[in-house]
Amino acid sequence: MSRDPAAQPILPGATIGIFGGGQLGRMTAMAARAMGYRIQVLDPDPACPARFVVDGCIEASWDDSREAANLARGCDVVTLEIEQISLASMDAAANYAPVRPGRNTLAVIQDRIEQKDWLRKHGFPVGEYRAVRSLDELRDAIRALGGRCFCKSATGGYDGRGQGKVGFRPGADAEEEARGAWEALGERAGVAEKAVDLEREISVLVARSPSGEVKVYPAAWNHHENQILAWSVMPAPLTDAMAAEARQLAETIADTFQLEGILAVEMFVTTAGELLVNELAPRPHNSYHSSERACVTSQFEQLVRAVCDLPLGEVEIVQPCAIANLLGDVWLDADGSAREPHFDRALAVPGIRLHLYEKHRPRRGRKMGHLSAVGSTADEAVANVLKAQGQL
């Protein structure tokens, strides 16, 4: 799509505000600084990863609308790297600067029930699910969905938190599993999703500017362990027809939202050859960290271009690239005592780069960084990154 000639881009030298100072905000800030922008972030953690690479950091909670307004007062545009921002904070910031993506997009995505209902209402393919708001509703949903389900909290929760599953342990007591799943939801509203026969999980990242220009990245193939992304590679091994279908699906979702920014669309590829939308993320996505080395334009630079209404960068793959997440477990022995990973051994593997987020307190399951590796093929890139990970 061609750009609107009347559009007014926000040029380098301006200030970008980011709701959230985690690793995604950090890497976005680094890309923005390379382009000549100044960066302000808001985050409740005074030692958030972005603090060390930005011009200023406001320490405030996600629902502090007064401080959200203060962030926007000093910025030319505001974006986000986390979905937990309250709508009141979004509205307060929008009084002083454009907020991209906007509150209408976030209102749908930050609640999984709203998100699933929105996708279904607009005709996008989703697996069978039920909204649940009590233990009795969860019991009924499990029976209606055939017994094997993933249960996810409606708000918050990621990397396996706020999630439970039932029907996967032979001989398990059904009532005990239902109660366990309800406790995993925090005894609050959530969704129960019928388990699908899965071939693989993929994601597709879309960038869309206020002028309506759109770029869609090639799909990434994602491998999860304990409901946390373990590794991801671009390009995903898909047929041309499947790749085109995934691209069109993601682009249509972004257009339906009238997205301003970037959107990651997580999808299931079933053994029957169907594509089902799993979840949406209106921000940089873990599976596209590989875009820094695989693509002409990284997801982080693309977010800057999109929210500043600059021409979007090209997204073609230059070389296959894989990433492997480094969790806090790498820094801990089996007994919980601290250890220092052998980064020198990992970096001895050809084609490896190390990306650490300056998080100083490792915890099991906490994302502390990632490794990236290139290869002549996607399979070779995965083999390289896993070999390096094994050296740690």
Rank of each mutant, 00 (worst) to 15 (best):
A254D: 08
G261R: 09
Q299G: 02
M1T: 13
F343L: 13
T239E: 09
A69S: 13
L259P: 01
G20V: 06
T297V: 09
F257I: 00
A244E: 15
S232V: 15
V196Q: 10
D333L: 10
D76C: 06
C295E: 08
R33F: 12
H122M: 00
V269Q: 11
A346S: 12
A383T: 08
P101T: 03
S290K: 05
G147K: 09
S203V: 04
A131M: 00
Q84C: 15
M267Q: 11
R179F: 09
F168Q: 14
A254H: 10
P49D: 15
G56S: 14
E251P: 01
I228A: 10
V126E: 02
L87G: 06
W62S: 14
N325T: 00
C149Y: 05
S337T: 15
H355F: 11
D379E: 15
Q389R: 15
E225R: 14
E292K: 13
E183K: 13
G186R: 07
R247W: 03
E199M: 01
A254W: 01
W331A: 13
V296W: 10
G22S: 07
A31G: 10
H285K: 08
L327E: 05
F124L: 00
L249S: 02
H224S: 07
L310Y: 05
A14L: 00
A97T: 06
W118K: 03
A346T: 15
P237R: 14
D344M: 07
L303T: 06
I109D: 05
A189D: 14
A306V: 02
M368K: 05
Y129L: 00
S298T: 15
A174E: 13
E67A: 15
G365R: 13
R38A: 13
A178H: 13
G127N: 02
E314Y: 06
D55Y: 07
P237Y: 06
A334N: 02
H289S: 07
D159K: 12
K194N: 08
R120I: 01
R143P: 02
R345S: 07
I39W: 07
V315W: 02
I109N: 05
L249D: 04
V382P: 08
E81Q: 07
T155H: 14
V41N: 14
V269E: 04
A50C: 10
V41R: 14
S134V: 00
L185K: 08
P101E: 02
A246S: 13
D43K: 04
M1I: 11
T252K: 11
V330L: 12
T15F: 09
P44N: 11
A338I: 11
Q84D: 09
N104W: 02
A334S: 10
C57Y: 14
A281M: 03
L310T: 02
G156S: 11
E380G: 10
V99E: 04
D309F: 00
G375D: 11
E274L: 03
E137P: 01
G212P: 08
A241P: 01
D4I: 06
L332C: 08
V78Q: 04
P5K: 03
Q84P: 05
S203H: 06
Y158V: 09
N226C: 01
W231P: 08
I202P: 03
E114A: 13
D111P: 11
M35W: 03
I228Y: 06
L356N: 06
E358C: 10
R139K: 14
I18K: 12
G74M: 10
G102L: 01
